[in-house]
């Protein structure tokens, strides 16, 4: 039995953190003594995990996508107005929302790569535009209503043989996660990481840097649209559904050990980071930590996570090198 799971570099720490949090949950909350509780947690975390996967593509290729939160709000508000409670409109509206996500990603990507504006600024601008345009269109507050069919994906569950009732959102998440992991092992996926690491080298070796970057933004937009469908389905129409999600998604990705600036980190770890974040909030809630301190704890944890990612590698290397040093270089005085 020499098979070892192939974990991408940097995945292990976040999995350890996640495991600790899950054990903590099991101790702290009676609801987490069976699979049902964890399934509920996964259902709740699914939209954020999907957002984190999208954000991962952009970050690993060296950019930022600050527009995903506004895109989620826009997706939900657009869907509610277009569906307006009519069941028959569900399918085409879902397609419209996905198409809208693609379009926003495409614009983000094109402005970044063709007009050479840093993605931080492009997506900040997009955030403002989406925020304003959506509510300009609906006259300030959401209108219309989502159909039952639309809400099934975020709210309902599917009867799966053996497993029983599994929420749709969990199934969608798993499909996306597997697809994303496979994609990152493909040539294109590896090239995407390479772009974040050193785009000049990719360019010199004939890689299509602009096209890869564009792809990352399009994927992020598409996944944000999917997350919008799940968020809207889970909790219904709301004007602030996407508020602050961009920072939460970036936090999740960083917690997953992905390097801001690109070139390092795995997509599974990014998703695990999102799940850890959600598990952390649930745990703090169960432990009765006041909501006010929640953000402080989150702040400390992300700083610790990046510091570990930046210094930890060096630390490990030093520890590994240490015996050799001892053999070769004797301390002069001790």
């Amino acid at each position: 039995m020499t098979w070892r799971p192939r974990l991408a570099e940097g995945t292990a720490p976040v999995l350890v953190v996640l495991l600790l949090l899950l054990v903590g949950l099991a101790i702290a909350g009676p609801a987490y003594d069976g699979p049902a509780g964890y399934l509920a947690l996964l259902k709740r975390a699914a939209p954020l995990m999907i957002l984190a996967i999208g954000q991962y593509f952009v970050i690993v290729s060296g950019g930022f996508d600050l527009s995903v939160g506004a895109l989620v709000t826009a997706g939900v508000v657009i869907a509610a107005r277009l569906i307006d409670g009519s069941e028959s409109a569900t399918t085409w509206v879902i397609l419209v929302v996905l198409g809208f996500g693609l379009l926003v990603g495409l614009v983000n990507g094109l402005v970044t790569t063709k007009l050479l504006v840093p993605s931080f600024i492009v997506t900040l601008g997009m955030l403002l535009v989406l925020d304003g345009a959506t509510f300009l269109w609906t006259g300030g507050a959401p209108r219309g209503a989502l159909s039952t069919g639309f809400r099934t994906f975020g709210r309902g569950a599917l009867d799966v043989p053996v497993l029983g009732e599994v929420p749709w959102s969990v199934l969608i998440l798993l499909a996306i996660l597997v697809a994303a992991a496979l994609f990152m092992r493909s040539g294109t996926g590896r090239a995407l990481v390479a772009v974040g690491d050193n785009d000049a080298a990719v360019r010199l070796s004939g890689g299509q840097v602009d096209r890869l970057r564009l792809l990352a933004f399009v994927l992020s937009g598409l996944l944000a649209a999917i997350a919008a469908i799940l968020f809207g389905g889970f909790a219904g129409v709301s004007a602030q559904v996407g508020e602050g999600l961009e920072f939460r998604a970036i936090t999740a990705v960083v917690l997953g050990g992905v390097l801001l600036g690109g070139g390092r980190g795995s997509v599974v770890a990014a998703a695990a980071g999102a799940l850890s974040l959600e598990a952390l909030f649930t745990l703090l809630n169960l432990l009765g930590v006041s909501g006010a301190l929640e953000s402080a704890v989150q702040g400390v944890i992300i700083i610790a996570a990046v510091a570990y990612a930046a210094l930890g590698g060096g630390l490990r290397q030093r520890l590994r090198l240490w015996p050799k040093h001892r053999n070769s270089v004797q301390p002069v005085s001790s």
């Binding site: 960083v254 700083i303 990046v306």
Partner: peptide, 8 residues
């Protein structure tokens, strides 16, 4: 701590 300024 060599953390990225954005996240720090």
């Amino acid at each position: 701590l060599r953390a990225n300024a954005f996240i720090a």
